[in-house]
């Protein structure tokens, strides 16, 4: 009970910032990626016309 009160107070003090600005509806900027792996494509361009799910990740 005390924990949830504390957590509630913390949440009120530090609202989570939005993850990203709203880019929905805008064209994807030109993509210059390197080391494309585990894909039959050799360049990002070869994904043209596909529905592309991009996930930004890190090992940590």
């Amino acid at each position: 009970m005390l924990t949830s009160l504390l957590l509630g107070a913390l949440a009120a003090v530090q609202p989570a910032p939005p993850l990203a600005a709203d880019k929905v509806g805008t064209p994807l900027p030109v993509v210059e990626i390197e080391g494309l792996t585990q894909s039959p494509a050799s360049t990002f361009e070869e994904f043209t016309g596909r529905l592309i799910l991009i996930e930004f990740f890190a090992y940590w």
Partner: peptide, 17 residues
């Protein structure tokens, strides 16, 4: 404008997010 990871974007066949 990605500020936190992980973050996902879905891009349509016409290149728009």
């Amino acid at each position: 404008g990605v500020r936190g990871i992980p973050a996902s974007f879905l891009v349509g066949p016409d290149g728009k997010i």
